[in-house]
């Protein structure tokens, strides 16, 4: 077990300088994600233009894994359709939980593949997946807030 597999340079970098770390003004979709065990709190914002994710951002506090995961997620989702985003959610779920199907095409995931080290640390899987679950909730209208 090498910590460098978990805290890869790209993860440390996204933790130190999270991208798209801001609020998106309404109209928007948003949801809160909370991991009470470790105190991670995230709020994910999405703005859709028809079916396409035009902008995506997040705010909150958490461990390096949860912040870096959220930061990289926002970069990867911009310009994707809703169904593409939900498909990516499934792929990330497979990657983090170590299912075989994902391992074959890990390179297609680009930067997000850096999170595959998490699977060796079962207690940290939830940290990496929190933002993705929160995004899914926001996208599927779980706690969508739409104002003028």
């Amino acid at each position: 077990m090498d910590l460098k597999d978990l805290y890869r340079d790209v993860i440390v970098d996204h933790n130190r300088r999270p991208r798209n770390f801001r609020e998106i003004e309404p109209p928007r979709c948003t949801a809160d994600g909370h991991n009470p065990l470790c105190g991670d709190k995230l709020r994910v914002y999405l703005r859709l233009a028809d079916d396409v994710i035009e902008d995506v951002a997040f705010e909150g506090s958490g461990c390096a894994i949860s912040v870096a995961s959220a930061s990289m997620m926002t970069e990867s989702l911009k310009g994707k359709t809703q169904s593409e985003a939900l498909a990516l959610f499934e792929r990330m779920h497979d990657l983090l939980t170590g299912r075989e199907s994902a391992a074959a095409n890990v390179s297609e995931l680009g930067k997000l593949a850096a999170l595959q080290g998490v699977r060796e640390y079962p207690t940290r899987v939830k940290c990496a997946s929190l933002c993705w679950h929160t995004m899914k909730t926001a996208l599927t209208g779980g706690q969508t807030v739409t104002t003028e």
């Binding site: 470790c38 105190g39 991670d40 958490g62 461990c63 390096a64 894994i65 207690t123 940290r124």
Partner: peptide, 21 residues
């Protein structure tokens, strides 16, 4: 450094501490 990361890093050195609330 978030406490959760501290917990994982020191565990790699064989040290058990509690992290959380």
């Amino acid at each position: 450094i978030h406490p959760h990361d501290i917990g994982t890093i020191v565990d790699a050195e064989g040290i058990a501490v509690r992290t959380g609330h």
